[in-house]
Design a protein around this nucleic acid. Structure first.
Lengths: 207, 207
DNA sequence: AGAAAAGTGGGTTGTCCAATCCAGTTTGCG
DNA sequence: CGCAAACTGGATTGGACAACCCACTTTTCT
């Protein structure tokens, strides 16, 4: 039976298989988009047999939603300790360098695993759109924590909103990733992040 | 016969019909994405008969590329005179208000007509990806002209790069639009643009 | 007037793919 | 052990859709 979104397989092996399917789907959808990825591709990549995909997911949409949640975890995981060090200008710059280098390694392909997926399904699947929005909000939250810490230490002007700065930084990052994907060049990402970090740095110098 | 990308129909009527097809495709793809838009939908919306789509376009991909070029024109056209007045902080703020209001009118649906389309096809159609990149570069060019004028008048510090500022502003706009689309709320767009414009304004005050 | 282009309206073909079903086997928890 | 879940490896259905073809009419350019 196909499970609903929240129910998890009961056994360890079941959870692992489910996870293999999601990971395979995430990889293929990142590389080729949702529409170009067939359940048969996913089945083969995950190394499971015919009926297993439908054993764990009601339909393709349910799988897409699971992939978005998976990518949200993966994105935060990939950035690792960088996200814990966004409370200094040096930490922010190191994070920026990491993101740029990561895109370079990928050949500027794929864009943001959450943003690109979310954009593709935003107007056709409200639940998937909300899952993507939730993923980005988690990311934004990590940036916000760093900037709030700087603010609390008085390193940012009292009237400056660390929350707004965090949201703006994530937006610049998303736009930079999109343009980097389209142009196959890390320059947009570099310039977009540098502009935001320069702004944050100049605010610290004003405080 | 299906024409290649550059050849245009010879008669006025032919150009109009071709344009009607592209406009219908643009509207439907903006609302539902490329994958969810069938040639039959387009044919019906454009009000043309069976074989006409293939009379003007070799295949769906060719039509998608035409739609991207069409949207690039439409986006610049929609912003009208605002793009001629990006050489003052007041002009930039008015432009920002216009963009936010435009999203509000659309119910935050669809995102950027160029960016959303480009992202969907970026990894499957290199020509379409490049068409989207070209469209964004035209947009960036209009922003750059404004900032270059400010720079030439000495209203921006000599060491500040108006070119980089323009690219960063468009990236912030793109990311803001994406997040606004996903969250169905203009806040990300507002905050992203405000952050970039605040940065530009503070640079003018430093100069 | 004559030719080329634009257009109608329909049919057709072939493929792809999501989704469902099933008969049987293996695994693993209690 | 016994039962339920996990899993295999198919087959199959049904629909959607891109792409192509055609016989014929209307419009437009020269």
């Amino acid at each position: 039976m196909a499970e609903n979104g929240t129910a998890r397989p009961l056994t360890r092996r079941g959870r692992e298989t489910r996870q293999r399917i999601v990971a395979a789907a995430a990889e293929l959808m990142f590389e080729n988009g949702v529409a170009e990825t067939t359940l048969e591709d996913i089945r083969a990549t995950a190394g499971v047999s015919g009926s297993q995909v439908y054993h764990y997911f009601a339909d393709k949409q349910a799988l897409v939603r699971a992939v978005i949640d998976y990518q949200a975890d993966a994105v935060l995981d990939t950035q690792g300790t960088h996200l814990d060090r966004l409370d200094t200008v040096a930490g922010l710059r190191a994070w920026r360098d990491f993101l740029v280098e990561h895109q370079r390694r990928l050949g500027c392909r794929g864009g943001c695993p959450i943003g690109a997926l979310g954009a593709e399904v935003a107007e056709t699947d409200a639940a998937a759109r909300l899952a993507a929005a939730r993923g980005l909000r988690r990311w934004e939250g990590r940036i916000r924590e760093g900037l709030q810490a700087m603010h609390a230490r008085g390193e940012l002007p009292a009237q400056a909103s660390p929350d707004d700065l965090a949201l703006a930084t994530l937006a610049a990052l998303q736009g930079g990733l999109l343009m980097t994907q389209l142009q196959r060049d890390t320059k947009p990402l570099e310039v977009a992040l540098d502009a935001m970090l320069d702004r944050i740095q100049s605010l610290t110098e004003a405080a």
